[in-house]
Structure formats: structure tokens, C-alpha cells
């Protein structure tokens, strides 16, 4: 599918950037004229993926988060969020609802949220190298009301 527009964004893994990342990505996706619900879905999925880079991949040390957003001709947004952090040993297990390697108030539902708020979610990871999360969402826009 042809790419209509593309944005690359690089952020330090500081928690304050969770808000900036979801705002920038959702603002960029506005060219596809999403409705409020779709915009919230995008923001939420991005927030989950970026938070995971900060708390898990870089374990609260400073690293870089790489975000690529592509707007495709068929009214689809593809968001890639990549880190060069610790990686995930068992991706399938990590994606199981409620699975978390951190206690406290982590719910273990980040991947579940990303999955249910998008049309497809792909996670590739290599232990010690990093993780790439690809979120694809079809934008139906105001027409879906």
C-alpha cells in the first residue's frame, strides 16, 4: 500500500514523553479524519507502547524511543514503536493478559489494550537487543457514526 505521509519521532525514555508521544502521533493521524473514538484508541495504544519502553525496556534508565508513523492510501495508520532496551524473552507470554514482570500498579494489560484498540498488533523482540511494536489501525472516521 502506498504511503501518503510519514513522520519519524525520536524521544528520550522519560515518562513526561508519554503524553507528548501520544499527542504527536494522534495529531499526525488527523489527516485521515478519525472520529473521537479512533483518536482515543490511537492515543491509548501509543501510550501503552511508549510506557513499556520506559518502564520495561530501559528499566527507568535513559534510552531512546523511535517512533515511525505512516499514513497509508487506504486510510490506515501504521505506528512502529521501537526501543533498544532489554528485549522480551518470551513474547507470547508477555502478551498474555495480566502477565507482568513488574508488581505495584502495573496491570499487565498493556498489550491487551493495544490489541483490542487496534486492527493488528505485531511484536518482535530480541533479548538484549530491543523490541519493536507495530500497531495498525484502519480509520473509518466520521462515516462510522
Amino acid at each position: 500500500m502506498k504511503v501518503k505521509n510519514e513522520m519519524k519521532l525520536q524521544l528520550k525514555s522519560r515518562s513526561v514523553n508519554e503524553g507528548y508521544a501520544r499527542m504527536a502521533v494522534s495529531a499526525f493521524a488527523c489527516e485521515l479524519d478519525p472520529n473521537v473514538e479512533e483518536l482515543n484508541d490511537i492515543k491509548t495504544a501509543v501510550s501503552e507502547a511508549v510506557t513499556n519502553c520506559i518502564v520495561h525496556a530501559y528499566n527507568n534508565e535513559l534510552g531512546t524511543i523511535y517512533i515511525t508513523v505512516k499514513l497509508l492510501e487506504n486510510s490506515t495508520v501504521e505506528i512502529k514503536i521501537r526501543d533498544r532496551g532489554c528485549g522480551i524473552e518470551d513474547v507470547k507470554q508477555a502478551m498474555t493478559p495480566l502477565f507482568t514482570t513488574l508488581g505495584g500498579d502495573r496491570s499487565g494489560l498493556g498489550f491487551s489494550v493495544m490489541e483490542s484498540f487496534s486492527d493488528s498488533l505485531k511484536v518482535t523482540s530480541k533479548k538484549g537487543k530491543g523490541t519493536t511494536v507495530t500497531i495498525v489501525k484502519r480509520i473509518k472516521g466520521k462515516a462510522s457514526f
Binding site: E48, D105, R106
Partner: peptide
């Protein structure tokens, strides 16, 4: 806005 941190809360 709320993500899964709201669930944790």
C-alpha cells in the same frame, strides 16, 4: 485521557 495506568489505579 486514560491508559492501562488507570486500570492499575
Amino acid at each position: 485521557f486514560m491508559d492501562s495506568s488507570g486500570i492499575g489505579l
